[in-house]
Structures are given as C-alpha cells and as structure tokens.
C-alpha cells in the first residue's frame, strides 16, 4: 500500500508532530513498510469471530464512593508542569 505525502501530513497532524521535510520522507517510507507487513492480516478468515479488546478476567470493578487521599498534592503536581502561576498550569496565550 502506497502512503502519500498528504496521508503522512494528515497522520502527523493527528499525532501532533511538527515533522521536518526529511523526517516526513523517512517516516513515510517506514510506515509504508510497516503497513505492508501488517496488511498480511487480510489473509486470515475472521468471519463471525467476536473481537477481544482486553484479556482481564474480571469486569465492572467498582470502588466505593468515598473520597480517597491522593498520593500527590496540588503543589507536587503543579511542580511537574513546565510553567505554573497562582495554582494553575500556564500555557502561551490562546486567543
């Protein structure tokens, strides 16, 4: 399957990558090879087979409706952000 430059640009946009021209070309080639490999799945007959999304044997694990203490407090979490001010995470101007 041929992957066009438009498709690479679209995937880069979905992935939020500002790829250089060079990166787009080399990733484009890699992606084409990988998609070529995974496309062999076409051969396998899966008619009438139910999909499996997870292999955990239990379902509906509820937790009681209680306020649980968190491992990290607000200051510690804010400290992870590159920039913060007045107890808020700071980002560049949006509007």
């Amino acid at each position: 399957m041929k992957i066009t430059r438009e498709e690479i640009d679209h995937l880069a946009m979905l992935s939020n990558f500002s790829l250089t021209n060079e990166e787009s070309e080399s990733l484009g080639q890699d992606l084409e090879n990988i998609i070529g490999y995974i496309s062999q799945l076409d051969e396998l007959d899966t008619e009438g087979v139910e999909p499996t999304y997870q292999v955990f044997e239990m379902e509906n694990i509820w937790r009681s409706d209680e306020i649980m203490p968190q491992d990290a407090d607000r200051e510690e979490l804010l400290a992870l952000a590159p920039e913060s001010q007045d107890n808020q995470i700071k980002v560049p101007k949006v509007l």
Binding site: I8, A12, S18, L31, I34
Partner: peptide, 22 residues
C-alpha cells in the same frame, strides 16, 4: 504541542504513534 512532541519523542515513538493513528 507539536514542537514539544516532535523534539521529545524518539523516531520509534513517532512511528508507533503514527501507525496507531493510522
């Protein structure tokens, strides 16, 4: 978003993220 992610991930991370989005 886009510059941080582009600088911050290795090429293999990018391949997998893009294949996933594909």
């Amino acid at each position: 978003y886009s510059k941080t992610r582009n600088d911050g991930f290795m090429p293999e991370n990018k391949r997998r993220i893009m294949i996933g989005n594909f």
